[in-house]
């Protein structure tokens, strides 16, 4: 088996995705709690999570608001962080499925995690299933988590205590490592891109480093992949 660490049956998919759901739910709870503890009314984190639905952008926008940065700076910061979703949506456009409504709904579910889950699959049918299953579950738990956190306040404490901040990079490692291992061209691009992103992180606004990482694609030669 070439990819024993990724799911091959629907049951495996749900088992792996449920871990991401659980972790995202807890982060959602902390988002709701932080926003309300900072003085925002309950509806702000709740509505924001439903219509914006992008964890890092929501944290940043609320962070800017609570720091007194003003709504324009808050929206700009969040939008800058979310520009990467345009690249993601282009990459998995044919994964969402047929039909206009399916694509309009699916677009809202494009996140780092769902794209990683989808791209971990080589087969188009499995890819579509991975996207929708992980995406619908993630949308549900994220919003329920935010609602619970906004209502309950700071009962959970600092989620770093549970190491949740290390869980998300690890999810990405687990999902992209099989591709990085199998494709030396993508591996070269990813290493250069990650190095560039790290190098500029201290000096540029949040959201810019990962966009600059795309410059790593210069190492992607023209030769066709063996796949």
């Amino acid at each position: 088996m070439p990819r024993p660490s990724t799911f091959t049956t629907p049951r495996d998919l749900i088992r792996d995705a449920s871990l991401v759901w659980l972790a995202s739910g807890i982060v959602g709870v902390s988002f709701g709690a932080i926003a309300v503890a900072g003085g925002l009314p309950v509806w702000v984190p709740v509505v924001m999570s439903l219509v914006v639905y992008a964890g890092s952008a929501q944290f940043s926008a609320v962070g800017v608001l609570l720091a007194g940065g003003g709504p324009i700076a808050a929206a700009a910061t969040g939008l800058l962080l979310n520009t990467r979703t345009a690249a993601f949506s282009l990459a998995i456009a044919d994964t969402l499925g047929p039909g206009r409504l399916t694509r309009l709904l699916g677009a809202h579910l494009v996140t780092d995690e769902t794209v990683a889950f989808a791209l971990a699959q080589a087969d188009p049918v499995r890819r579509r299933r991975a996207f929708w299953v992980s995406g619908i579950g993630l949308f549900a738990v994220w919003n329920l988590g935010v609602l619970a956190g906004a209502l309950a306040g700071g009962a959970l404490g600092d989620t770093a205590t549970y190491g949740l901040d290390a869980a998300f990079p690890a999810v990405l490692v687990a999902l992209i490592l099989p591709t990085l291992r199998a494709d030396p061209r993508i591996r070269r691009c990813a290493l250069l891109g990650a190095a560039l992103a790290l190098a500029v992180t201290p000096t540029v606004p949040a959201g810019v480093p990962v966009l600059l990482a795309l410059a790593g694609l210069v190492l992607h030669g023209r030769k066709e992949a063996s796949a």
């Binding site: 990813a190 891109g193 990650a194 990962v210 990482a213």
Partner: peptide
């Protein structure tokens, strides 16, 4: 590019 973005997100 999507994998490169995910790798950069992972590193940062």
């Amino acid at each position: 590019g999507a994998i490169v973005l995910l790798a950069a997100l992972l590193a940062t």
